[in-house]
């Protein structure tokens, strides 16, 4: 069993390697008409090297990363905090839920034109978009997690002499963690998808903006480099929260 587990990661890499090899061969042998629009993988790797060496990729990546981190952290913290209060106190839930139900279905990018007018083109714009993108789903999952905690656990804690705040911190929040993490994990990837879209449309720096510049220069290789960076970052963020969730809850779930 242990041996099987050790072998598994290799199996995951194999299909990717085969895919890249086919890509390289197809592009090199000009098997697709208009091969100009389909550079080989090796060309993309070389372009990645050039973009990294001259700092273009690093600068744009860093700009996107900072926006995602600030927006996502702020949105998640706000979502978790308000979600806990809404889940724990019925009157807060009753007061805020109608407003949140109205705002939640609006796609994060739907806010873009309005925010461009309100905030102007600047750093606040993408950060706010990411904040909105993270806030609502994390809030929704937190409320669900808190409300789904079995009432018996709360009543037992009460009979054992625990105060409301102690019950919230030591029973309800830990038991809501799986739901909270589901929200965080999904939105961590989504934040990258949204920032790219926002940068493509309205912001002159970042990975999304770099892609738009590459598009105007018909640099397919740069676009593919950006897409690969985006894919890796989405995956990394999602995996980080999946790892964190496993670390914190696997012992008892």
């Amino acid at each position: 069993m242990n041996r099987l587990k050790k072998i598994r990661p290799g199996w995951g890499i194999l299909p990717v390697a085969i895919f890249l090899a086919i890509w390289e061969i197809v592009a090199r042998l000009n098997l697709i008409p208009g091969q100009f629009f389909f550079p080989p993988f090796s060309t993309v790797v070389m372009e990645f090297y050039y973009l990294t060496a001259n700092g273009v990729l690093g600068d744009n990546f860093l700009a996107s990363l900072v926006r995602v981190l600030i927006g996502f952290c702020a949105g998640s913290i706000a979502g978790i905090t308000i979600g806990i209060i809404m889940g724990w106190r019925d009157f807060v839930h009753k007061a805020l839920n109608p407003i949140i139900s109205l705002l939640y279905p609006i796609p994060a990018l739907g806010w873009l034109p309005l925010l461009m007018l309100w905030l102007g083109i600047g750093e606040a714009l993408p950060i706010t978009i990411i904040f909105i993108c993270s806030f609502f789903p994390v809030l929704y999952n937190t409320v669900t997690g808190i409300k789904n905690v079995d009432e018996d656990y709360i009543q037992v804690a009460r009979t054992l002499g625990a105060s409301d705040i102690r019950i919230l911190i030591t029973v309800v929040m830990p038991l809501a963690l799986p739901n909270i993490f589901t929200g965080l994990r999904l939105e961590a990837g989504m934040a990258w998808r949204v920032i790219i879209a926002a940068e493509m449309v309205a912001i002159p720096t970042g990975i999304g903006a770099l892609m738009m510049k590459a598009e105007s220069l018909i640099r397919i290789d740069i676009i593919i480099v950006c897409l690969i960076v985006l894919s890796v970052m989405c995956l990394t963020f999602e995996k980080f929260f999946a790892y964190l969730e496993t670390r914190l809850t696997s012992q008892w779930r």
Binding site: D152, Y153, Q155, V156, T159, L175
Partner: peptide, 14 residues
């Protein structure tokens, strides 16, 4: 100061 044993026991799983 009541000790209460629920039918479902409700041991804290975490």
């Amino acid at each position: 100061k009541v000790g209460y044993l629920f039918q479902e026991l409700a041991l804290f799983p975490h």
